[in-house]
């Protein structure tokens, strides 16, 4: 067993510096690496490029980094629900690259799998395809998209073991598995970290080979963005 366990979030993010590119898992506030985001805020590193499906809300998730003006560029598919984000974007403080959600996911998976580029029909004929190579396959038009290149991939899982194996829960899985191994260093924070041998290998979603550093998060707020319920 190759032990990936680190003692703290500070150790997990060692080497994170100004100007680096970070992939961060999560969909809305679901399955985001809360403890690592807090650490990035504490480190105060700036001019970051963040690849994340969403940009959090004003006072949680990546919104915390936006508040401190630590993000230079966001690569996302949907950035509603965040007034500070909108203000920074419209004022030109923040650069934003909007990317179709499936393309965003595939750009992560391609990076993980060593595929430099791929063709997708998403965005063909729209401004997303401007300046990109297009090609026809079997009578349909496709746009070439390139894999992401990032310094850190930061993901959140439900359970993990010291070998870096990960298991996700519910829709908190989302972008997290696609981002594992898609950057130079993958950091996984988990709700429960167990010794190697305690996870059933049949149940592992992401093998530890994709993870360099793993730690158990101190606490999880798991904020709900839209609490919708029905009557009994």
């Amino acid at each position: 067993m190759i032990n990936k366990r680190v003692a703290s979030v500070a150790e997990a993010l060692q080497g994170a510096r100004d100007g680096m590119t970070f992939m961060l898992g999560g969909f809305g506030l679901c399955g985001i690496p809360e403890n690592s985001i807090a650490e990035l805020v504490r480190l105060g590193i700036r001019d970051l490029t963040c690849i994340s499906n969403n940009a959090g809300v004003d006072d949680f998730g990546l919104g915390l980094l936006l508040q401190k003006h630590q993000i230079k560029k966001m690569i996302s598919s949907y950035v509603g629900e965040n007034d500070e984000f909108e203000r920074q974007m419209l004022s030109g403080e923040l650069e934003v690259e909007l990317t179709p959600q499936g393309t965003l996911a595939e750009k992560c998976r391609a990076a993980q799998a060593g595929i430099p580029a791929f063709f997708t029909p998403a965005g063909y004929g729209t401004e997303v395809a401007e300046g990109k190579e297009t090609r026809e396959f079997n009578g349909k038009m496709y746009v070439m998209e390139e894999a992401f290149r990032a310094d850190f991939s930061i993901v959140k899982a439900w359970k993990g073991d010291e070998a870096g194996n990960l298991i996700f829960k519910g829709t908190a899985r989302n972008f997290n598995p696609c981002m594992c191994g898609a950057a130079k260093i993958t950091v996984a924070e988990v709700e429960e970290l167990v010794p190697a041998g305690e996870l059933d290998p049949n149940q592992v979603h992401i093998p530890g080979i994709y993870v360099q550093r793993i730690f158990q998060g101190k606490r999880y707020e798991k904020r709900i963005e839209q609490r919708t319920v029905r009557k009994r």
Partner: peptide, 23 residues
């Protein structure tokens, strides 16, 4: 909090449901 739809609303699953990653 770990079970939402694409509108970020809390939802449930029905028998036969499955979860998967974004890719």
């Amino acid at each position: 909090a770990d079970l939402i739809n694409a509108g970020k609303q809390t939802v449930t699953t029905l028998p036969g449901a499955s979860f998967f990653d974004s890719a």
